[in-house]
Nucleic acid binder design. Structure first.
Lengths: 172, 172
DNA sequence: TTTTAATCGTTATATTATAACGTTTAACTT
DNA sequence: AAGTTAAACGTTATAATATAACGATTAAAA
């Protein structure tokens, strides 16, 4: 028997209701502590993002927000996303122009994002050794770091087991 | 006396004419070897990208291409960019929606990009240790990698010496 | 030399994101 | 509690980035 050593983000395989609820409670606490407003709109957007572990597009969020918030326009979404990013509650996935809930809110935010091409789910890993190696490399370059984005595209462990999933073109 | 241990990409500080010419010759050789066509348009776009070490936007390239290629339209640029990326002759900077010449064409293409917020120049580093650490982390996640993008934003060594440059908000 | 595939021209449109400005709501001050 | 200030939001418009689709042309292969 093998032990599953990776998180299985599928709604069926983990208690996603609890997962979302934890994220929202954490967000509420952090915002309260920081004296910033997690307004109803911001809260709804965060909730929509957490509906899955997939990276979600701004205009997709807008479509999903509209029924709940008639007046919602692009600016509504982008303002909420800006706030949530500032507070470290979500990540922007640069290589997809999309967003995903941060599963380490309140902790450090230099993350490695593993982005599955098949299911679009994003797994976040703190990857201390990677960050240390990056820091060392950067020091050699005499560079002052403001932010790091490490995004890896491929096929997640779960999707590798599915039939008809292309796992080719792999590197490193 | 200190030794300069980082590349200085300023047009005044390195022989940029030679730098560009090397990139173009390498591109020509690689395309010939591979039996793919570095057409006049593709060659011009590559040349325009290499005008500097800054990340350059697609529509900026389009504006610069138009005088040389009357019929140039967005598709003209995006097709050329797609080709140049497929051939590993340029990098897409995901976090800027921009493009930069690849200074390691023909070699490995898993790179660390150091993007200066002040001068917009992009330095490319092969960062073997970083890549090894990423590979190890990914193996633990049971993930199959197709591509990696490691992008670091901050202030380059050159700009740190300039007056009035904000070097704050640094991390790691 | 015919056939096929690649490249390019062209038009249209989809997608992502921001600017600007007025109104409302919340927080702070007295 | 009333007045003041700042934050958040509504709204319109538009900028910036990117792709689809299809026909014409050019290059490569048979």
């Amino acid at each position: 028997m093998t032990t599953q050593t990776y998180p299985n983000l599928s709604p069926l395989a983990h208690n996603h209701t609890q997962c979302v609820s934890e994220a929202l409670v954490t967000a509420e606490h952090l915002c309260a502590e920081r004296g910033v407003q997690l307004t109803p709109i911001r809260h709804k957007v965060l909730e929509l993002i957490w509906e899955s572990h997939k990276a979600v597009k701004a205009y997709e969020l807008l479509d999903r927000l509209k029924p709940l918030q008639q007046a919602a326009k692009p600016a509504t979404i982008y303002r909420a996303l800006d706030f949530l990013m500032e507070q470290g509650l979500i990540h922007r996935v640069e290589s997809l122009n999309a967003f995903v809930g941060c599963s380490c809110s309140g902790l450090q935010h230099e993350q490695l994002l593993l982005i599955c091409k098949n299911c679009q789910e994003v797994e976040e890993r703190s990857a201390k050794k990677v960050m240390a190696a990056v820091s060392q490399e950067i020091k050699q370059a005499g560079f002052i770091v403001h932010s790091k984005a490490i995004e890896v595209h491929g096929i997640c462990a779960k999707c590798q087991t599915l039939p008809g999933v292309n796992v080719n073109n792999s590197v490193g």
